[in-house]
Amino acid sequence: MTALLKLDRVSVRFGGLAAVTDVTMAFSPGSLTGLIGPNGAGKTTLLNAISGFTAITSGHIAMNEIDLSPLSAAERARLGVVRGFQTVRLLERETVFDNVLVGCERLPQPGLLGQLLALPPERRCRARDLAATETTLRDLGLLPIAHRRVDELPFASRRLTEIARLLVVRPTVLLLDEPAAGLDTRDRRALVESIRTYHEAGGLTTIIIEHDIELVRRLCPYSVALDMGRIIASGSPNEVLSEPAVQQAYFGVRSGA
């Protein structure tokens, strides 16, 4: 199968620090990949590079054969590369509804004049966006709190709101950075089910950074391990986790020790 997203010898340096070195990966359409590794391994930097929040020093990133390197983060988002953040980022003084509605900005919108004069194209686009937002909120169980301000909500609802924003318009590539961080067991389970449901329904190509190894095992058929900016293992989660290099990186344990 032709890869949807390709990283070819991607490196990212910050001055003298090599954050990511020579990473080559390919993600097939509809794949669900877990990205694991110890702190400082370069996982978030890699996500930033794919989404355009960090410039790469060398290499290429392409999606559907389109070179993403010259594109800004906003342009990549409009192409369908959407990402969540390690800490929940929301528009704090807005409601759940408006936070999710922002995600619809990835779709083509009418011109300024049309918006100001509420011409038919603007009204149609507006209706489309409002409907998509309502649907997403319903699917994720957020509709009852849609008109509450997000800064009044518990952490789990905030995280789910952020994910709703990413999913309101079907992305091509979904990048999640530790989406389960801070959630209790029950909420993690719910999150996993939501991601799985969306992934299976939409065939999303999804990359998830996670420290929760069990979550990765349950959710991701495929995983990649990074350490010190390089890939040290790839394969099914069990294969990756049994690699000596991965055990050394994570646990400091040598095989057979």
Binding site: S51, G52, F53, S72, A73, A74, E75, A77, R78, V82, R83, F85, R89, L90, L91, E92, R93, E94, D98, L101, V102, G103, C104, E105, R106, Q109, P110, L112, Q115, L116, E122, C125, R126, D129, R165
Partner: peptide, 27 residues
């Protein structure tokens, strides 16, 4: 404009958090 249009949504998002706005495709 700020509350009923797409432009307004983009403005409010950019005002609150530029990173969120960028990740939502807003220039």
């Amino acid at each position: 404009v700020l509350t009923r249009t797409s432009l307004g949504t983009s403005l409010r998002a950019s005002a609150a958090d530029a990173a969120i706005a960028k990740s939502a495709g807003i220039n």
